[in-house]
């Protein structure tokens, strides 16, 4: 039996759990140091069978209800890769987002912007054999929040990935190019520069479809598997 792959540790671009400018971290971040452990079989394995587990694909967020949602139609596509640039095949990508007015279809979102009965904002796809994924959606709006006076979240799409192993779990947010709110957002700024820019998608005319939707590229890089010395022994 070969030793399973182990995975790289966090790099310098990962945020700390405590980032006081994001006020909610003050009471929700541990004060004790994390206990560093080796990766055992528990950390180097992970779930499969996404369809059986979570249900079928939902790739087009504009066709989930009776009519088209309001807003600028967009295509978001990219690849899921490991740190060696190799595709992460057949892995699940889950997304959720606010509507074009910046309102979430959520009972606790009290922002005074209109709900859209034709937009939920939830999607889920499996990457193909080259690690590619693609969603159709509408561009989410920015919205205010209570972190500090006149705080506004930049437009963003939430993404959730499990990757090949427990160790590769990632939840992130995708931002849009040329958004002036990014540099004054405490959540985005919990990530140091220049790595923060990894979360900023790129407008792409080749992904854009004529007379239909603007295209944005966003690759997701998971903690990469490294061959272990055990394997080479």
């Amino acid at each position: 039996m070969t030793k399973p792959d182990t995975y790289t540790r966090e790099d310098a671009g990962q945020p700390a759990s405590l980032h006081p400018a994001y006020a909610s971290t003050l009471l929700r971040s541990p004060r004790q140091p994390l206990v560093r452990i080796p990766q055992t079989l528990t950390e180097t394995t992970g779930p499969r069978d996404w369809d059986r587990l979570m249900g079928g694909a939902m790739a087009d967020l504009t066709t989930q209800h009776a009519a088209m949602p309001q807003g600028q139609r967009i295509i978001v596509s990219g690849r899921v890769l490991d740190e060696q640039g190799r595709p992460v095949k057949h892995t699940v990508v889950e997304i959720w987002q606010a509507n074009a007015a910046g309102r979430y279809i959520h009972a606790k979102d009290q922002w005074d912007a209109p709900l859209d009965p034709n937009f939920t904002g939830a999607g889920r796809v499996i990457t193909d054999g080259e690690g590619r994924y693609r969603f159709v959606s509408v561009r989410p709006g920015a919205y205010p929040w209570g972190n500090h006076y006149n705080a506004w979240r930049p437009a963003h799409i939430h993404l959730s990935l499990l990757g090949p192993a427990f160790a590769t779990r990632l939840v992130t947010q995708m931002y849009f190019p040329d958004d002036p709110l990014i540099e004054i957002d405490p959540i985005a700024n919990a990530v140091p520069m220049p790595q923060r820019q990894r979360m900023v998608s790129r407008f792409d005319i080749a992904t854009t479809q004529a007379n239909w939707a603007l295209g944005y590229l966003f690759d997701i890089v998971l903690r990469g598997s490294l061959a272990t010395p055990m394997e080479q022994r």
Partner: peptide, 13 residues
């Protein structure tokens, strides 16, 4: 800039 995509909160919604 190629490297690990940074983690962000799931938020409340």
């Amino acid at each position: 800039l190629f490297g690990q995509t940074p983690s962000q909160t799931v938020g409340p919604f």
